[in-house]
Design a protein around this nucleic acid. Sequence first.
DNA 1: TATTGTTATACTCTATAACTATA
DNA 2: TATAGTTATAGAGTATAACAATA
Lengths: 157, 157
Amino acid sequence: MPARPKRSSLSKEAEEQSTDLEEFVGYNLKRAYVIVQNDFRQALGEDGFAPRVFSALSLVVQYPNINQSELARMLGIERSGLVVIVDELQSRGLLHREAVPGDRRVQALVPTAAGQKAYAEALEIVRAHEAALLSNLSEEETETLIALLRKIRSAKD
Amino acid sequence: MPARPKRSSLSKEAEEQSTDLEEFVGYNLKRAYVIVQNDFRQALGEDGFAPRVFSALSLVVQYPNINQSELARMLGIERSGLVVIVDELQSRGLLHREAVPGDRRVQALVPTAAGQKAYAEALEIVRAHEAALLSNLSEEETETLIALLRKIRSAKD
DNA sequence: TATTGTTATACTCTATAACTATA
DNA sequence: TATAGTTATAGAGTATAACAATA
């Protein structure tokens, strides 16, 4: 049996030809998202923050005393899903839940000094990795990309 | 107890202020992806194709006789994950697995007439819904967005 | 009645590893 | 030895529904 080409029975041309899928924003979003997300995880390593944990910590550091319902809303996830994320951050000693005088239902999320430090360090690592990953985009292209992605979100407000 | 503002203890200004997260392509990709994906699912309804099933069918229709390993590679997923997708399409009568003369390990994926019809219909629905969802982006902006997303992917080749 | 945080639960997506039959 | 398809399994991520405490 003759050896087959290693990767494909389709020609390279056929593959780069535009398929229906390539016309969709959704498909291209998904493919790009997977790449960037994998890079993020690799950047922070085995025991590093998952993207959603990093995001939660980011908002807690920037908005100390935020409560969980508010944080969930800002992240675009359900309150119930946030519990395990906050649990993880608390068990790592990066934030604590604090009673709020005047409304005993609410617990304010307060970053610890360790939490602020861990966040600052992770922030720099993620920034550097994302910049390296996207080094074939110019600064202007990256800004344009972010602006267009935000425009999709703003349509849903 | 005085009524609180409904959505937030943070001012609207604070919220639209740029946080660290907003600077990241990854975060903005994720948020936009969730919106577009939800719209996709809503477009095709309860019993419609999931995004990945639609994508698989799309490639089978456009590349009849493609095999599963090749299809998985083009979709950027593992072979093992494709099995359930192809099973679903086959059980719906939209494609069949066909023996390939000369290599009995391989099964070619061939769309049925029903598969081609279902795909053509879904394609138009998805196109229309995505266009409506992204109606606040100009055609040029949408093209730019897709080009930039593809550029991220091309860096990983 | 409504809201905050929580638990229980289930579903989707995906990856890894191992198996089989073929090559 | 290597590859195509498959199975088993497990781990994320997320949503829904219900509950207790509080407003």
